[in-house]
């Protein structure tokens, strides 16, 4: 599994190519790129920062869980940090599997879960100011307070 946090451009096509193996019938790719606006406000660039060591551990955990949960053969998960401009890849998810159903499901689960659990933040620079993007709430298992649920992660 190729799990990385990088500071330079993500070589998406090369990563997808190296993920393919003879046993695979499908490779599902999610290429997350920087959009030119947020709710109509024009974006100049995004600055991504991370709690790097923890983020990498979380990403490794997600990739391993995707393999067991969906039965896919291999996963690549790469996130870029630093300043990104419109059109650049911020995150790449690649899932290789014998069948397409599991590949689609695992790919969707990986990006959705990464988005709410991996400690990475982005600051959006607009023509008229900068703001930290609002994140989605943490899942109950990660929250400090979550009612009576005392189950720890994993």
């Amino acid at each position: 599994m190729r799990i990385e946090i990088v500071d330079e451009a993500i070589p998406a096509e090369a990563i997808v190519a190296e993920m393919k193996a003879g046993a695979d019938g499908a490779v599902c790719v999610f290429d997350g790129i920087v959009r030119d606006n947020t709710r109509g406000r024009r974006t100049l660039h995004l600055d991504y920062e991370a709690y790097r060591e923890m983020a990498l551990e979380q990403m490794k955990g997600l990739a391993a869980e995707a393999v067991t949960r969906f039965g896919v053969r291999d996963v690549a998960l790469v996130h870029r940090l630093g300043r990104l401009v419109v059109g650049e890849t911020s995150v790449l998810v690649v899932v290789a599997s014998a069948h397409r159903g599991a590949a689609f499901d695992a790919c969707r689960w990986l990006i959705d879960t990464l988005k709410t659990t991996v400690p990475i933040w982005k600051k959006e620079q607009f023509v008229d100011g900068a703001v930290w993007a609002d994140g989605e709430p943490f899942p109950a298992a990660m929250a400090v307070h979550s009612g009576d649920d005392l189950e720890m992660l994993g």
Binding site: T38, S90, I120, W121, A133
Partner: peptide, 13 residues
């Protein structure tokens, strides 16, 4: 001990 605001990595909103 790290204080983590809701995360916002990955794709756009």
């Amino acid at each position: 001990v790290a204080l983590l605001p809701p995360v916002s990595g990955g794709r756009g909103l």
